[in-house]
Write a protein that binds this DNA or RNA. Structure first.
Length: 156
DNA sequence: GCCAACGTTGGC
DNA sequence: GCCAACGTTGGC
């Protein structure tokens, strides 16, 4: 089982939006970076857990946990001319872009902010904190995942 | 809004 | 295959 961090701009898709969906599930569409795509296509498995990270917003940080409930399948927004994520190079036979489906598992009582993550030596090797790192999907160790989950529970 | 750091594109 | 130009990301 693997652990992940998945970034989203909350103005586009937030954990509240996921939580308010009827089945509390959503396809993680719109990823247009090959490395992030490869993680989804090749490595993400059903049952994996991911930290939900809000980026480019007022309160930056980890806001909760989601579970991968459906493994890689083609991202249809790449074929949709009306989508902001349309890619003219994608075809039905060669979709290029893939996505997984996630399900809401937990919303932290308080955000674990980027500033706080930076304070803990135990989290200092997270890709998130490495210079120039901007991948929207990143690997997280079990230790890091548990540490952040514990930080969140301590704030209750 | 700024800007550093990346990733992608396209001419050669 | 190189690499300059350009576009994007994302924290501040």
């Amino acid at each position: 089982m693997n652990y992940w961090l998945m970034k989203s701009e909350p103005s586009t898709f937030s954990i509240q939006m996921l939580k308010e969906k009827k089945n509390r599930q959503e396809s993680w569409d719109g990823v247009r970076n090959y490395q992030a795509r490869n993680f989804m296509r090749d490595e993400m498995k059903r049952g994996d857990l991911a930290l939900f990270y809000h980026s480019s917003c007022k309160e930056i940080g980890v806001v909760g946990i989601v579970e991968i409930v459906k493994e890689s399948h083609p991202d249809k927004t790449a074929l949709d001319e009306n989508s902001a994520y349309f890619d003219p190079k994608a075809t039905k036979d060669n979709p290029i872009w893939f996505m997984v489906d996630v399900a809401f598992r937990e919303e932290f009582p308080q955000i674990i902010s980027l500033a706080e993550i930076k304070k803990h030596e135990e989290l200092s090797e997270m890709p998130l904190l490495q210079r120039g790192q901007r991948l929207s999907i990143q690997k997280v160790t079990k230790r890091e995942f548990s540490f952040i989950k514990k930080l969140a529970s301590l704030k209750q």
